[in-house]
Design a protein around this nucleic acid. Structure first.
Lengths: 232, 232
DNA sequence: CGCACAATTCGATCCGCATCGAAACGTTCG
DNA sequence: CGAACGTTTCGATGCGGATCGAATTGTGCG
């Protein structure tokens, strides 16, 4: 009866409201302290501590002590993927959203998925790279072509640095609202960082929203064009 | 604090061992009766009934009364995707597999993911369609080209029937063991059905394993060739 | 019509665990 | 060293919900 892996164990970890709030908060990609997570989840410090211990034990969250605080972050891209998958389903089939505020529109447009760009802009980036053969899917996970390497170098990404770290360069991640893949992996991270450095966009404090400036958006559209019919 | 959708609600539904077993059983794609699911989950009939009611209420499972039994099935492809995502993570980070039996190897090779082909063979199929431009990713979800349409017609798929139903033709689904996309959607379903009809493969009773005959595998490899280096 | 079987409802039980406050521990800073 | 603060441990409390058996409803078959 019990073939597949122990899915109940980790689902029940996500299943508690307090822990779910913690994980959702960590989707911002930033490492947060135990105290911050406690207020974020709306529970006392002690309960939050207990929850965090369990999350770490379950492999969902990584901890790093720094002075007298302890910082927590998601254990990896894979955890973010699971959470996005859950959000994707819950968004459609959950009891209809209380009220779709303006925040939701912004989240759908561009947001950070753990540490890379997701939402409409994230999909645009992914599609554009594929359409112009800067990235191909032929055999393995998405793979950057030589032309693609030149391209990201021109954008100002420190490519040598990326290659040095062993982490996988390209990865796909399923999108939250539209059910479409976008670019994760260390390249996804690096690109988002680059956009921020270049002043194209900045994260809105305490949210996962990524706001593009009008000028930054123009440059982004120029760098990552898509065929007109797939514009969202 | 509480932006994103209600992920805790549905995660907690999956989080109970009995319900997780039920859902895993339903990943076979077959509709099962309440009684079968009860024994499968290892609980009494009454508790299973209660669980099933909750799963239906949560939108994870669909029910269909037929005579004096009630058949249950997963509510849709999206649910299967969430479950596969969870399995993918749990497989890696769960307490190391009790013992990797021969069944696991077969599951990794070829299995049914709700209703389409997954595992090494599923990935092979997906990659092959892309590599030969029978399918392209350019803008929207993967899309069958004209050449691809001819190709699947030659394989004996009733394509007109597929187009008539409104269900999306192509969809990607993240793989369980290797973290790679494979083909879901109505075309994915139809292809798996075709393989079974043609005698290339058959499902092993009461499992998600798909076993190819030696001759069937030869034909499959011929129909869906891949570049040698990506053979798994 | 009445028996057999599938599924559900009901009531009762019981365990897990989320939660908190207070106290203990560790670190930083004055 | 001592005070302030962040974090964790401990003990106690209470609630939700998983579970079962028995009784009930509903369906098919003889």
């Amino acid at each position: 009866m019990k073939h597949g892996p122990d899915i109940a164990r980790i689902a029940s970890l996500i299943g508690d409201p307090a822990r779910a709030n913690i994980l959702t908060a960590l989707m911002s990609g930033k490492a947060l302290t135990a105290g911050e997570l406690a207020t974020e989840a709306g529970v006392s410090a002690s309960t939050a501590s207990s929850h965090l211990a369990r999350l770490v034990d379950g492999g969902l969250v990584k901890e790093a002590r720094q002075g007298r605080h302890k910082y927590f972050a998601l254990a990896g891209d894979e955890v973010a993927q699971v959470l996005e998958a859950l959000m994707g389903f819950a968004a459609g089939h959950g009891h209809l959203r209380t009220r779709t505020g303006p925040k939701d529109a912004q989240l759908r447009a561009a947001r950070v998925c753990y540490n890379h760009l997701a939402g409409t802009r994230g999909i645009q980036l992914y599609d554009s790279l594929l359409a112009r053969n800067f990235m191909v899917l032929d055999a393995d996970t998405p793979r950057l072509t030589e032309a693609g390497e030149r391209f990201v170098r021109e954008l100002g990404v420190d490519f040598d640095q990326l290659v040095k770290s062993r982490a996988p360069l390209c990865r796909t991640c399923l999108d939250w609202s539209a059910r479409r893949p976008h670019l994760a992996g260390s390249l996804g991270r690096a690109l988002l960082k680059r956009f921020e450095e270049a002043g194209w966009a900045h994260r809105v404090r305490d949210t996962r929203i990524v706001r593009f400036s009008t000028d930054g958006l123009r440059r982004f559209n120029h760098a990552f064009p898509v065929s007109p019919d797939s514009r969202a």
